Simulated scan of single mutants.
Amino acid sequence: MLTDEQTIEVGFNIFRDKFIFTNRRLIIVDVQGMTGRKVQYLTIPYSKITKYSIETAGSFDLDAELKIWIGSDPNPIQKKFNKKVNIYDLQKVLAKHVL
Rank of each mutant, 00 (worst) to 15 (best):
K83S: 12
F60W: 12
L99S: 14
D17A: 06
E5S: 13
L90P: 01
W69N: 02
N82V: 00
K51N: 13
R37S: 12
I8N: 07
P45T: 04
G33E: 08
Q32D: 09
E5C: 06
Q78I: 15
D63L: 15
I87Y: 01
T43Q: 11
S59I: 14
E65K: 15
I28D: 00
K79M: 10
L90F: 03
Y88C: 00
G58V: 05
L66G: 00
P45V: 03
W69I: 03
K92L: 08
G33F: 08
N23L: 07
T7H: 09
A64Q: 10
V39P: 04
S53A: 12
I68G: 02
Y88S: 05
V98W: 04
T56I: 11
Q78T: 15
V10L: 07
R25P: 06
L66A: 02
V31L: 05
L42P: 00
I44Y: 09
V93Y: 04
E5K: 13
Y52T: 05
I68P: 01
S72M: 06
N75R: 11
V10Q: 15
Y46M: 09
R37P: 00
G11L: 10
R16S: 12
F15C: 01
D4K: 14
V31I: 13
I49D: 06
V85W: 02
Q78S: 13
R24C: 06
G36Y: 05
I87H: 01
V98T: 13
Q32T: 11
T50V: 12
T56C: 07
T43C: 04
S53M: 10
S53R: 11
V93A: 03
I14F: 06
L62N: 10
K83N: 06
Q6T: 03
T35S: 13
M34H: 08
E9V: 15
L62M: 13
Q40P: 00
L26G: 06
D73Q: 07
K79N: 06
K38W: 08
F12E: 07
K84G: 00
L26M: 10
D63K: 15
N75M: 07
D61G: 02
S47E: 15
R25G: 04
F81H: 02
V10W: 00
I87K: 01
Q91C: 01
I14Q: 09
K48I: 09
I49A: 07
D30S: 10
V98M: 04
I87V: 04
M34R: 12
L94N: 05
T22M: 05
K79T: 08
A64H: 07
G36A: 04
A57H: 10
F15R: 10
I27V: 10
